[in-house]
């Protein structure tokens, strides 16, 4: 009985350890974004996004959508780049909760590199897990939006 308990605790512990180190390992394995991208992205988040989306990316209930484990943040890069560039003014609904405050467009405020950095940062933080956003993707969407 005791033995079994030890085994269970040990296995659980191992899982926890793995969860803790997984992002770094996974990132290194796929040659993902380096620390500088993350640092730049975090800085942009803090300067530009944090007031509304909050320090923990939890948003403001009923007003500003959370960016934690977000279907928008983790969704197609094309869509999320478009939101950052154009803003959003439709009253977003996530998990049955409606968010009413508008998001202004940041297409003229942030450069392509900055949009790529902040989205890459968001897509690997706050419980999100999605591929990095590249500056090429951002530039392409900016071109398409100009048409």
């Amino acid at each position: 009985m005791k033995k079994r308990l030890v085994v269970v605790i040990t296995m659980l512990g191992a899982v926890v350890v793995c969860l803790n180190i997984r992002p770094t390992l996974a990132e290194a394995a796929r040659g993902g974004p380096g620390p500088s991208t993350m640092q730049r992205g975090q800085k942009i988040y803090e300067q530009t996004c944090l007031t509304c989306h909050q320090a923990d990316a939890g948003g403001v209930p009923g007003m500003t959508p959370p960016l934690q484990k977000s279907p928008y943040v983790q969704g197609p890069a094309v869509k999320v780049i478009g939101i950052v560039m154009n803003g959003l003014n439709d009253g977003v609904e996530i998990d049955g909760e409606t968010y009413t405050n508008p998001m202004p467009p940041f297409g003229t405020v942030l450069k392509d590199q900055e949009i790529a950095d902040v989205l890459t940062y968001l897509r690997s933080h706050f419980g999100n897990k999605a591929a990095p956003v590249t500056v090429t993707q951002v530039a392409r969407i900016r071109q398409e939006l100009k048409k």
């Binding site: 030890v6 085994v7 605790i9 040990t10 659980l12 512990g13 191992a14 926890v16 350890v17 803790n20």
Partner: peptide, 17 residues
């Protein structure tokens, strides 16, 4: 090995306070 894993688990667990 089991003890070392257990030790790791405790350390990791404590960071989830």
């Amino acid at each position: 090995i089991a003890y070392s894993i257990l030790f790791l688990a405790i350390i990791a667990g404590s960071s989830f306070k």
